[in-house]
Amino acid sequence: MEYRIEWPAPMDESDWAMQEIKGWIDVTIVWDGGRRDVEVYDPLRLAQSVGELMNHYGYVAVKYLLVVPRVTPENIESAVSELVDKHFF
């Protein structure tokens, strides 16, 4: 299946370094006939976000979540490629 990842904006090395520090990014996976917005987190930031949401709302609901070791374009591209191969999208 042909697909592409739409990043939130053109990003250079400095932008990616900041994104990796933040530990999350929202991307869109686009393929013929579909698109899916995906929240991407590293494990530490995910745990922090879950804790904050639990304290505030008492629950956590995430429709499309991808957790990668570090929020880098390489990790995201690799994970998405594997998911595409497994017909996730």
Rank of each mutant, 00 (worst) to 15 (best):
V27Y: 06
I21E: 15
M1Q: 08
Y64T: 08
G33R: 00
W7D: 02
T72S: 04
V30C: 02
Y59S: 11
E52D: 01
L53N: 03
A61D: 11
A79N: 08
W7I: 07
T72W: 01
V67M: 11
E74N: 13
R45E: 00
E77W: 05
E13S: 02
V40K: 03
W7V: 02
L83G: 13
H56D: 15
V30L: 01
Q19E: 10
V30Q: 05
D32E: 01
M1K: 00
E39L: 09
N75L: 13
D85H: 13
A9M: 09
E20L: 02
A9Q: 13
E13Y: 02
G23T: 11
D26K: 06
G58T: 04
A61I: 11
N75S: 14
V40F: 00
A61H: 07
V30M: 02
A9R: 04
D85E: 12
G34N: 08
Y64A: 14
A17M: 13
P69H: 10
L44T: 03
D85R: 15
E6S: 08
N75P: 07
P73A: 13
V38W: 04
N55S: 14
E82K: 09
E52F: 02
R4N: 09
F89S: 11
P43R: 03
S49K: 12
R36F: 01
V68A: 07
V30D: 07
Y3L: 01
M1W: 00
M54P: 06
R4T: 08
W16A: 06
L65K: 09
M18L: 10
V71Y: 08
I5S: 03
S78Y: 15
W31L: 03
I25A: 01
G33W: 00
R70N: 11
G23V: 05
S78D: 15
S49Q: 12
F89N: 12
L46C: 15
K63M: 09
V30E: 08
E6N: 07
I76H: 14
Y64N: 11
D85I: 11
L65Q: 07
D32K: 08
L83S: 06
R36K: 10
V80D: 03
D32T: 04
G34P: 04
L65H: 01
E13H: 06
L44I: 07
E74W: 10
F88C: 10
T72I: 09
T72V: 06
Y64E: 14
L66A: 09
V60E: 06
A17C: 01
V30Y: 06
D32Y: 10
L66Q: 05
M18R: 04
R35H: 05
V27N: 05
